[in-house]
Design a protein around this nucleic acid. Structure first.
Lengths: 231, 231, 231, 231
DNA sequence: CATGAATGAGCCTTCATTCAT
DNA sequence: AATGAATGAAGGCTCATTCAT
């Protein structure tokens, strides 16, 4: 079996095991067995337990970011770009549960080198969203003609944009976990839920506003957008 | 020394150590030494490492929830109630960094019993926010007089309210971590940032809306609400 | 059992095992079993395998050097001082076979920290012998009256004295090993053999000179100085 | 490439690696790489790690013994024979540092089969020196005419001759190590140092005797016989 | 009540060794 | 002939946990 394929096989198994048991509770024996290779191969290919975990993180983060950034085509209007990115994110999480579990729950509890790795990946996402937020602000609000001060909140400073991005990413993470816990729903639906909160806001919605529906992707398992039973 | 006090002393030390080193990297030796008691005492009082960690989780979650729910007085208008709860949350996190680190970063990476514990605490918070969201919806939108269908999104079903609550809690968590990473700011400011996103929404803000400022609490270290430098 | 005593017990066992199997072939399991303690105790008391070995080296070297230097009383005439030191050395080796095996055969084959340790101990011995040699030279040969050059070899330069000391120590080591291999003989006899070579030299002996006998110590096992059968 | 040459190439690399890292710390991977052959070849040609080490020992011992015995021509007078042998030995060690390191430092610390191998080689040397010593004794001292007892030490019994040989070999080993440690000097000079101790003895030297110099071999790097600085 | 002393169990890692090609 | 790929076995080290005092 060629080397590259073996390596993927090992990473697949490792992600599976890490997501199920957590980093420390997963033993290299267990991962080796799940990979269907011997332990020395694991070490020969990946170096050490920590390196193996880091490799998992890197691969899964790359995949996730790739899926999201491919969906959010730069040409689109900002709101639509965000909505598509979120949809891709929720779709990815639904299809790669283990991958997301490792990234979101396991990677943050580890020591320095790994935390830095995952923080870098998350930072990449946050920066993209920050840029999106800032672009939206610039695009929609014309500069004041009379040279007076820009209306507050319209041109968010760097800190504000970053905070907004953090909130969006955090909310998306939480919703992803919620969907995994309470049962699947179409990613478009989850994205709509989130867009309703962050894009329209709660108060406008209370007076009837609603972020527009989008038809569910046909290939998804649940065509009708059923509500997950809550409690 | 009375038993209850000893126990608190142990929990204090344990939270400190767990938050610094993580669950697995913290040894009972280390915790015993930091508690200034002998290891057998630790076991006599708390039973096992896992039980000790669970006790930490429970205590810290209770404190956090207590602080938040005390701030969100039931009589208030819903938006204000949410804003105060968020402010209390960010204030608590800033003052009890270790506590939040353990709850947010460490507890989720562990095995079943502990994850269940922290999930229960989080569920309690989410339920409160869900109720708040639902109450806001009921209060602000009169039932349609003509018996026609309620406007979409106005009376969120249970799932929608829960999703909104999840998004809010997730966003708050992410912002708490962001503030810890990028440097302190008054909790009122962080709460305003989040309220701006979730309550007003992004699009209205792009046209000039802004969630109203609140004066900073006097005892806070930074009277003028400086923006953390971003990037 | 008090801590100090346990530690000696561990060192005893370790020296025994190391001398029998060599450093690398000795496992900590084996040493723990031979010490009649559990492996964690070994690590608690001695730190690591390398540290344990180093502790053995240090203790055994100290004992050996102590025995020899106690025997070579400073007041004696140099030849006698050397003879007594050698006798004490051979007696020590005969009674602490393992100790010497570890020092002479095992310690030199290890990595840096340990080799440095044993080299330091050996250096201590060599320096003592060097001083002895130099003192002997000074004492027995008056400075030339006429200011002419000292006769060659009479006042050995530092290098020469050191070389002589190295030769003596090396010869003693080899003889110690030979005695262990070929069967015991009184240490006085071995010392006399060596003194005959180095003190008198071979050539004079070839013409009948002999380093004077000394009576065997009464408590020794073999009163009559039997020759070990060779080959 | 013919088999014999490959094998020598492997042994060369093995000696180099063994002398640098020691037996256990040298891995077969490392040796294979240093030999520029694949690991299976190593096993095909040499059988096992232990066998490889034994082959190194055997080859290096043969070379060393060959060099020495070629120098000590049987026809010479005994003292001169010894001196030339020693000179050849010191020259060999200086030029084949690795070879001697493996023989002297590494081989003795190993387990039974290898220790036996090196002991056999050393025994061969010791026997040759023993014979030399005995021949010297026979040659220089006429048998007593009156049938009285031979003067003590004049006709050394087998044990005495063997002891003398051991002392000489041990002293030579120690001096070889000393020269390697303290910096090179002409082998003739080192041989003279040793001859001064064992052949003339210390006491006569203290009264001015000196083993005669021999001119340094011309090709040696340091024409003037400089003393290594000591301490 | 409180603790110094002690341990069973398990994990990461490495290496000599061998197939299948 | 020659090798890339693969592994069984074992060792150093640590830690949660418990007695005996």
């Amino acid at each position: 079996m060629p080397r590259a394929q073996r390596e993927q096989q090992m990473l697949d198994a490792a992600v599976r095991v890490f997501s199920r048991c957590g980093y420390h509770a997963s033993s290299m024996d267990e991962i080796a067995e799940a990979s269907d290779v011997s332990k020395p191969m694991l070490y020969l290919y990946l170096g050490s337990k920590e390196a193996l975990f880091a490799a998992c993180i890197r691969r899964e983060a790359d995949r996730l970011i790739g899926a999201v950034s491919q969906a959010a085509e730069p040409g689109l209007e900002t709101g639509e770009q965000l909505r598509r990115g979120l949809t891709a994110f929720f779709a990815y999480v639904a299809e790669h549960r283990d991958s997301w579990t490792v990234l979101y729950q396991q990677a943050r509890a580890q020591g320095e080198p790994i935390v830095a790795e995952v923080a870098a990946a998350r930072g990449q996402v946050v920066r993209a969203v920050t840029a999106l937020v800032r672009r939206a602000a610039r695009a929609s609000v014309p500069a004041p003609r009379d040279g007076g001060p820009a209306p507050a909140g319209v041109r968010p400073d760097r800190g504000e944009a970053a905070a907004v991005a953090q909130a969006i990413v955090g909310a998306a993470d939480a919703l992803a976990g919620w969907v995994l816990d309470t049962g699947p729903e179409p990613p478009e639906e989850t994205a709509r839920r989130l867009m309703s909160v962050i894009w329209i806001g709660l108060e406008p919605r209370l007076h009837g506003a609603r972020y527009p529906e989008t038809e569910c992707r046909s290939e998804h398992q649940q065509p009708e957008c059923q509500q997950p039973e809550y409690q």
